[in-house]
């Protein structure tokens, strides 16, 4: 019996699980366990939105979701910053320039770039959470006049863990963006802040009534950050978090990434805080 769904009847059969094959162009070390791969985008690669992610496949090992971390205006390459934490991510970090990698994507809902027009933008990154925020920063800086005050508050473990250091230094020289970096501890020559990223929020001036926050980092960090932003006067619907869960398919079929009613892969990864708030307080959701 025919399917009770007119939507699919006209669609051609394509397989969203089938990756495109591409090659590593550049491999760059970022930190002790972290490196950035630049992949050939190829003609088939669709444009991506800041905050989206790709599924990267390492031969014989598996697939893993990795955020887009490059400039959305640069169409010829896909930039991914990867930390070797599991089998697949470790295999990916071992790839050399010229090696093959499978790519599916981009997937998911990105940062509210248009909703933030005319607003002060508070970007709060924790650790590797800077990677999915970098495309948003590129975009904001490319159309700087569309946004109000722009602040990046970046917390990480120690000065040696700072991602994209040269870029941050270059941006810091601009007069139209405020960049504050804080570390949990410093044991070398460090003249930046030491302390949690929440202390930076309390020291930052912005217009809470016309402000929007984009937050990405470990969940614990995002929870306290969202609270600090609320205390600073931001409304819950002006705070956006990029969530992470186990993902096998990225297209809403495998069920792994569910977070309450949300599929992180297709409803997220960027989700508005007012839609998450209660769930974030519960354990093991």
């Amino acid at each position: 019996m025919a399917i009770q769904n007119e939507l699919t009847a006209t669609l051609p059969i394509t397989d969203p699980m089938l990756p495109r094959l591409t090659r590593v162009l550049v491999r760059r070390r970022e930190g002790p366990e972290t490196l950035t791969l630049e992949l050939e985008a190829g003609a088939a690669a669709p444009a991506f939105l800041p905050g989206q992610f790709n599924m990267l496949y390492a031969f014989g090992i598996g697939e893993v979701a990795i955020s887009m971390s490059g400039d959305p205006a640069v169409a010829d390459r896909l930039v991914h910053t990867i930390r070797a934490v599991g089998e697949t991510s470790t295999a990916l970090t071992r790839l050399e320039a010229g090696d093959h990698v499978g790519v599916r994507g981009p997937f998911g809902a990105g940062w509210p770039m248009e909703a933030a027009y005319g607003c002060d933008v508070i970007v709060v990154a924790g650790g590797l959470g800077l990677a999915p925020l970098r495309p948003a920063l590129y975009r904001i800086l490319a159309e700087r006049e569309r946004y109000g005050k722009v602040v990046l508050l970046y917390g990480t473990r120690s000065p040696t863990d700072i991602l994209y250091r040269h870029e941050l230094e270059r941006w810091r020289r601009r007069l139209d963006v405020q960049i504050e970096v804080t570390v949990d501890y410093a044991n070398g020559p460090w003249h930046g802040h030491v302390g949690s990223v929440t202390t930076l929020i309390r020291r930052t001036d912005f217009d809470p009534l016309h402000g929007i926050a984009m937050v990405c980092g470990p969940e614990t960090m995002m929870r306290v950050t969202a609270l600090a932003l609320k205390e600073a006067g931001l409304k819950e619907d002006a705070i956006y978090l990029s969530m992470e869960r186990n993902m096998k398919c990225a297209i809403g079929f495998c069920g792994h990434c569910q977070f309450g009613p949300h599929f992180i892969c297709k409803d997220g990864p960027v989700l508005r805080y007012d839609r998450l708030g209660d769930l974030l307080r519960l354990k093991e959701i």
Binding site: G127, R157, D161, D184, G217, T220
Partner: peptide, 19 residues
């Protein structure tokens, strides 16, 4: 209390081996 909260977060080492 804020200092305590900040110290707690630093102690958790959240950036260490999670994201």
């Amino acid at each position: 209390l804020r200092r305590l909260e900040s110290a707690q977060l630093q102690m958790l080492d959240v950036y260490g081996h999670s994201k």
